[in-house]
């Protein structure tokens, strides 16, 4: 599945330091391998009924250090299978960020974005330009990401990428020697 390049949706605004225990508690995520089941516990630490309230195409906007703590890929999986189309944060924790690309969930780092968006504002993510347009029409560029990662995200993550190319996106990097 290739993601469309413009994503419009209403924004759920989250604070700084939303960790993966909040996004999906261990005792639920470690008891299933089914992403649809994982989605029932998305954002459980803040609101156990979040899964009833979220709508397909919604977007996440968060402060700094979104996804800190555990390496659990079930955290971005639970968000993706809640049909949240993209996560925008002022910064991401390292493993969560890698996991987003690995599973094909668009993740954009936009400094200062949390203060520009109010709960349920309609906003727009442009995956082509790698930017976010807020309700007042202003465009906020996201921090640059290496092209091989954006390609991975566009193609839907590692599984889809491998099926199409029969290699992983970094395997072609190796021969090019990417040192600056």
């Amino acid at each position: 599945m290739t993601a469309p390049s413009i994503l419009k949706g209403r924004a759920w605004v989250w604070p700084d330091d939303v960790n993966t225990d909040i996004i999906i508690p261990f005792r639920f995520k470690a008891r299933t391998n089914d992403p649809v089941e994982m989605a029932k516990y998305a954002m459980y630490g803040f609101d156990p009924e979040f899964y009833k309230k979220v709508k397909a195409g919604d977007l996440f906007v968060a402060g700094k250090n979104f996804g800190g703590g555990s390496s659990r890929e079930q955290a971005p999986v639970a968000i993706k299978y809640s049909n949240v189309a993209a996560v925008i944060a002022e910064s991401f924790a390292r493993i969560f960020y890698r996991n987003c690309f690995a599973i094909g969930l668009p993740a954009l780092e936009v400094p200062g974005i949390a203060k520009q968006v109010k709960q349920f504002d309609e906003i727009e993510v442009n995956l082509q330009d790698w930017s976010v347009k807020t309700r007042d029409g202003s465009v906020h560029p996201a921090l640059k990401v290496p092209e091989f990662l954006r390609g991975l995200m566009r193609e839907g993550g590692l599984v889809e990428y491998y099926k199409r190319h029969h290699n992983f996106p970094w395997e072609t990097l190796e021969t090019k020697a990417v040192a600056r």
Binding site: S71, R72, E73, I95, R98, N99, A102, I103, G157, L158, V159, Y162, F168
Partner: peptide
């Protein structure tokens, strides 16, 4: 640390 999909890629 890494996530599960990247671990699967390492296994491969």
């Amino acid at each position: 640390g890494i996530g599960s999909s990247e671990m699967a890629a390492v296994w491969a």
